[in-house]
């Protein structure tokens, strides 16, 4: 009897050493779902986009880029999605800076998550009422600052013709008409869509920024403070550089959401004018002209423009420090 063990290593162990074991099977349902629900429709759409009605290979793309009614949708969508994403980020950072120090964060974050759960259509309906010509917002504004508003008289007395500025300081009237003469037009135009995208996109942006910010070791700021850095310097030299990579990711996710805007562009915007976004063009091609091939091409163009922006932002991200945001040994 030899006590030399067999050199043969069972297949199961060799596979496990490469990271393949029974647990790997748990990923299978997702892989199947991805292939059926994403990979196949995508490839099918790509194929379809090269089979336009006129029979040429690139007919759809030629049509898209020669028809201003179509190619202008890219610019219009970008003109909505980029400002929305930037506004959300710029507002989220200072709020998150304060909220991360609060003890009752959960209450606030719960309240902020609500607009996400409500869905865009409900928000749009609410905004139509609230920001509409007869809505609360305009009524309050008019009551305060309109021609018959509470503050119009006093304001006119000071800044209007024959007012204090005009008479006493001899600087001429600064106001010749009421600040607001009628209801502000806040819906059924660009502003409406912008506002709705900010309302629905902000909580998401905020929560992401908050989590990135909480990932920065608070001891770093303390260290900077003891080294003589005031609040402004601490933000500029410590927080911002460590937050930038997270902001880039947040920008991409927020941008992707805003770029594919559809319901609020239709409900709150001017869907045949300034807010004719690219998804509306794709919708019209598919369900009004029944040209699935053109619709697929538009969807592909949408995907490519999205990808270009995301690649540009993530590419810029590689230029900054991306390591851990802790100050200890890692």
């Amino acid at each position: 009897m030899s006590d030399t063990p067999s050199e043969h290593v069972p297949l199961r162990l060799r596979l496990a050493a490469k990271g393949i074991d029974g647990v790997t099977l748990l990923v299978l349902p997702l892989v199947v779902a991805l292939i059926l629900l994403f990979v196949y429709p995508f490839l099918y759409g790509l194929w379809l986009s090269f089979r336009p009605k006129d029979g040429s290979l690139l007919g759809n793309y030629a049509k898209f880029f020669s028809d201003p009614f179509l190619y202008e949708t890219v610019g219009k969508t970008l003109w909505l999605a980029i400002p929305v994403t930037v506004i959300n980020l710029v507002v989220a950072i200072p709020v998150a800076l304060r909220v991360r120090l609060m003890r009752r964060q959960r209450v606030l974050t719960t309240i902020l998550v609500l607009p996400i759960t409500l869905g865009t259509v409900l928000v749009a309906e609410g905004m139509l009422n609230y920001f509409g010509p007869q809505g609360w917002f305009n009524r309050v504004l008019l009551t305060a600052l309109g021609p018959q508003g509470w503050f119009n008289g006093p304001l006119m007395d000071v800044f209007g013709p024959h007012g204090w500025f005009d008479q006493t300081l001899m600087m001429g009237p600064l106001m010749t008409a009421p600040l607001i003469s009628g209801p502000l037009k806040l819906v059924h135009n660009y502003t409406g869509v912008l506002l709705s995208l900010v309302i629905t996109g902000f909580p998401f942006t905020f929560l992401l920024v908050l989590s990135y910010l909480t990932g920065i070791d608070p001891a770093l700021e303390k260290a900077a403070a003891t080294l003589g850095a005031g609040p402004g310097s601490r933000f500029r030299h410590i927080i911002m550089p460590l937050l930038l990579p997270g902001l880039a990711v947040t920008f991409c996710l927020g941008f992707v959401q805003a770029y594919s805007v559809f319901p609020s562009a239709v409900l709150l915007g001017a869907p045949s004018g300034p807010t004719r976004v690219i998804s509306i063009a794709a919708y019209e091609a598919a369900f009004e002209q029944y040209d699935y091939s053109l619709a697929s091409a538009i969807a592909m163009i949408m995907g490519v423009t999205l990808l270009l922006v995301v690649i540009a932002v993530l590419g810029a991200r590689t230029l900054v420090y991306r390591g851990p945001a802790g100050g200890g040994k890692g």
Partner: peptide, 8 residues
């Protein structure tokens, strides 16, 4: 205690 070195 954890040094708090600026990682970037």
């Amino acid at each position: 205690q954890n040094y708090a070195l600026f990682p970037h």
